[in-house]
Computed example of a mutant assay.
Amino acid sequence: MTFRELLEKYKNQTATPEERKQVEAELEKYNALTEYLLEQDVDMEGEDLAGQQEELQKIDRSMKKRGRRIIAIAVVIACVVMGALTAFQPVISKVIWYDPTERDLQQYSYDISCHLAVLAELTMPEVQMESVIVTEQGWGKYDLQVQQREWSSGKYIWEDGTVTRGKIELKSNVYQYGAINAFSRGTAPFGDSVMTETPDAKVALADLPEYLKMEAYVSLGKDWTMEELADFAAKQEGYLGWVGVRTSPEGEQRLPLMGFDAGGSGYIWENVDAVYPFYELSMHEDVPLAEAWEKHFLALLQYSIDQGDFYARLNQSNDHGNACQAVQKYVTENGVKTYGFLYYGTPAEMRKLLENEDVEGIHVTDYQLRVPGL
């Protein structure tokens, strides 16, 4: 009889006492084996769980180690990048934004000095631009010190300015444009001219001491060609300064007034003259003065047009580059002519100037004592 059949009789309570003992002995054996196997499973599960926890700890330690490594690498990279940015900041800054320390025109002077010198000569009758000192402040920022010289007194003036990421801000005092009513025919009428007419000017000058050196705007009753101006200058003893040029018909208005310095003084920009012939009057003394003046004025205009990007960065520049294009067109069609000029001389030299029939009058803007021996 099989154990299965025996077990069935045990369950049906038909088994004999001997068969019952046999089944119970087998069941006892089975229970012991079951308990043993259960104990073995628990031990194995504990070992597996401990192993899994240990593996997880290893993974966690590895991830933390890797995280620290990544953080360290990121810090190193950030330090390297910041160091590189700091070290190469001037180079990077000058690539991105306008650089006022450019020296493309002249080896020993900033280009900005020449740019402002041209603007001053064309539009500022009473001052001369001398130089610009540039101090870098980092990341497209610069401090400027602009030096000007007054024609009448010879006094030097320093004005501050800044360059901030390409935009140039100069103090308003830098822009010393000519007075619109100083010449009788320089501008369309805005009101009464400040000119003193010739008869009254002669009376006012009659008793003035000769140790005065005067600055005066001289107004002409008709426009002169450069030949007429050169002929006049050759007969005078005083100093011919800034010459106003007719840049539009008399009935129209174009500001600021434009002209040029007839004396050609200041720094010598030889390299600029090579690109813009007659930029430097002093380098062309073998050419008739009238021709040199005309070509000089045209050179200043062309320079301003070519450097239009610079002038567009300036505050209060009145769109100088584009304005010069319109002036260039007008003088090319009508010639370079003057309606008046600045003149420096003693009362006697001023009286002699007023003897010319084309001179309508003068407007004195400054005077200085010039006592011999002092």
Results as ranks from 00 to 15, higher is better:
Leu229Ser: 02
Trp269His: 05
Gly263Arg: 15
Asp261Arg: 11
Ile268Gln: 06
Met214Pro: 00
Arg254Asn: 12
Asp261Glu: 13
Glu252Leu: 14
Pro256His: 13
Asp223Trp: 03
Ser219Arg: 02
Ala233Val: 03
Met226Ala: 10
Gly251Ala: 09
Trp242Ala: 01
Tyr267Gln: 13
Lys235His: 10
Val243Asn: 04
Arg254Leu: 14
Glu227Ile: 06
Leu255Lys: 08
Leu220Trp: 06
Asp223Arg: 12
Ala230Gln: 10
Asp231Asn: 14
Gly266Gln: 08
Leu257His: 08
Ile268Val: 15
Met258Tyr: 08
Glu252Trp: 09
Val245Arg: 01
Ser248Val: 12
Trp224Leu: 15
Gln253Val: 08
Glu228Arg: 08
Leu220Ala: 05
Ala230Ser: 15
Ala233Lys: 12
Phe232Ala: 10
Pro256Gln: 11
Gly259Pro: 02
Trp224Pro: 03
Ala234Pro: 04
Pro249Gln: 10
Ala216Gln: 02
Tyr239Gly: 00
Pro249Asn: 11
Pro256Tyr: 07
Tyr267Ile: 08
Gly259Glu: 09
Thr225Ser: 14
Ser219His: 06
Ser219Pro: 01
Gly264His: 11
Asp223Phe: 05
Pro256Ala: 14
Pro249His: 12
Gln236Asp: 08
Phe232Gly: 00
Thr247Gly: 06
Met258Asn: 06
Pro249Asp: 15
Glu215Asn: 03
Arg246Gly: 09
Leu240Glu: 00
Gly238Glu: 05
Lys213Pro: 00
Ala216Phe: 00
Met226Tyr: 07
Leu220Pro: 02
Tyr239Ile: 08
Thr225Arg: 05
Met258Leu: 13
Thr247Pro: 01
Arg254Thr: 13
Leu255His: 07
Asp223Lys: 13
Gly241Asp: 09
Tyr217Gly: 00
Ala234His: 11
Phe232Asn: 02
Tyr239Phe: 03
Lys235Ala: 09
Met226Ile: 07
Val245Gln: 02
Lys213Phe: 11
Glu237Thr: 10
Phe232Ile: 05
Leu220Ser: 07
Tyr217Asp: 03
Glu228Ser: 10
Gly238Thr: 12
Asp261Asn: 15
Gln236Gly: 06
Ser248Trp: 00
Gly266Ser: 14
Ile268Phe: 04
Gly244Tyr: 09
Tyr239Asp: 10
Trp224Ala: 03
Glu227Asp: 15
Leu257Asp: 05
Met226Phe: 12
Phe232Ser: 08
Gly264Trp: 07
Val245Trp: 03
Leu240Gly: 02
Trp224Thr: 03
Tyr217Ala: 12
Val245Ser: 01
Lys222Ile: 07
Leu229Thr: 02
Trp269Met: 06
Ser248Met: 04
Met214Arg: 00
Ser265Glu: 14
Trp269Gln: 03
Gln253Met: 15
Ser265Val: 13
Glu250Gly: 11
Lys213Tyr: 13
Gln253Cys: 12
Met226Arg: 02
Met214Asp: 00
Ser248Cys: 14
Arg254Ala: 14
Gly264Val: 08
Pro256Thr: 12
Glu228Phe: 11
Leu229Ile: 06
Ala230Lys: 04
